[in-house]
């Protein structure tokens, strides 16, 4: 009984924290981007400009929720929900601290890969349902981009899975007691990080919404909270991928002195900052460059990483 209560409390806490964190990240990203560009950013409303989050939320809720007459309504309405659902569901498998995991699944990694491959649909369907050529172009780009980067992401994680000998995320964290997987799996980490950029379609890989070419890409026709869901969904997936990078390569909640949860939060926050710094620093590559880089460079590298890791593990065990 107490187990069920604990799980319910955990689910409620995770949902609350993640959703608020997504709002908080709006402020973090704006302030941090500004600081990186030698500006100050929003600092007027409230202490450090923190109330800008409240202002943003009020604004986005009270805007007119305009559904254009030329769109495919059911798909148009369903698309923004998909990203929220898939990104939030993926948090079920993340171990925040020893024992504090909602779903201690033996195929956790596979569940995450499956959910992230389902997450593609939000962009594709939004792009198609908008009945707008720019949105459609964004959706098509997204389909191709996420489809290819999905492959590398799965392959790069296989090295970690081989070392840990399990698809269970808690087991992966436990397997890093002797040493974090960033050392033996550095190539895998780089590939996973690049794939995460492609999956979350953050800059520099934001082909599907490239403002300068496609207006706003797949969410051109969206307004009000439907746009807000894309916006928040992006931040949720950034948080998710940061948490997963922490779990897979940086020892999850492992660390000295501080409590496990604190270590987890510190590492995750670090990766979120890296995401934002990359956004400030790097220009957007051309569309074909992205794919040439993916298929001609990352795919062989991921395969090589997998083969070498597997060979070493076999050699050690024999």
């Amino acid at each position: 009984m107490s187990d069920v209560v604990f799980k319910l409390v955990l689910i409620a806490t995770v949902l609350l924290v993640i959703l608020h964190l997504a709002g908080f990240l709006i402020w973090v990203e704006r302030r941090l981007l500004a600081l990186l560009q030698d500006r100050l950013g929003p600092n007027r409303a409230g202490p450090l400009g923190l109330f800008i989050i409240v202002a943003d939320i009020i604004k986005i809720f009270t805007k007119e929720d305009w559904i254009p007459p030329f769109i495919d309504k059911p798909v148009f309405v369903a698309a923004p929900m998909i990203i929220m659902v898939t990104a939030l569901l993926s948090f079920a498998i993340v171990p925040f601290a020893p024992g504090a995991v909602i779903l201690d699944l033996d195929i956790g990694v596979l569940l995450f890969l499956g959910l992230s491959s389902m997450g593609i649909y939000n962009v594709i369907l939004a792009g198609w349902a908008s009945n707008n050529k720019y949105a459609l172009l964004g959706g098509l780009r997204m389909a191709a981009q996420m489809f290819s980067y999905e492959v590398f992401m799965g392959l790069s994680l296989m090295g970690v899975v081989t070392l840990a000998g399990s698809f269970n995320l808690s087991a992966i964290v436990h397997a890093q007691r002797e040493g974090w997987f960033i050392v033996p799996q550095f190539l895998g980490f780089l590939i996973f990080f690049i794939a995460a950029l492609g999956e979350t379609h953050r800059l520099p890989f934001d082909m599907p919404e490239a403002e300068s070419e496609l207006i706003a890409g797949y969410h051109t026709e969206y307004s009000s909270m439907k746009f807000g869901m894309f916006f928040v969904g992006e931040y949720i997936s950034v948080t998710l991928f940061s948490a997963l990078m922490t779990t897979f390569f940086f020892g999850g909640w492992l660390g000295p002195v501080l409590p496990p949860l604190a270590w987890f939060c510190v590492k995750t926050a670090g990766f979120i900052v890296v995401f934002i710094v990359l956004r400030a620093a790097l220009p957007r590559p051309r569309y074909d460059q992205l794919f040439a880089f993916g298929w001609k460079f990352i795919l062989p590298a991921a395969l090589l990483n997998l083969v070498v890791t597997g060979a070493l593990v076999l050699w050690k065990s024999s």
Binding site: L32, L35, L36, D38, R39, L40, V277, L278, A281, L282
Partner: peptide, 22 residues
Amino acid sequence: SILKSVWLVFLHLFRRKITIQY
């Protein structure tokens, strides 16, 4: 060069800000 530019942009975090608080 990509890593270098990321590092240089990161260093801008500690630069003096040019914003004039109007």
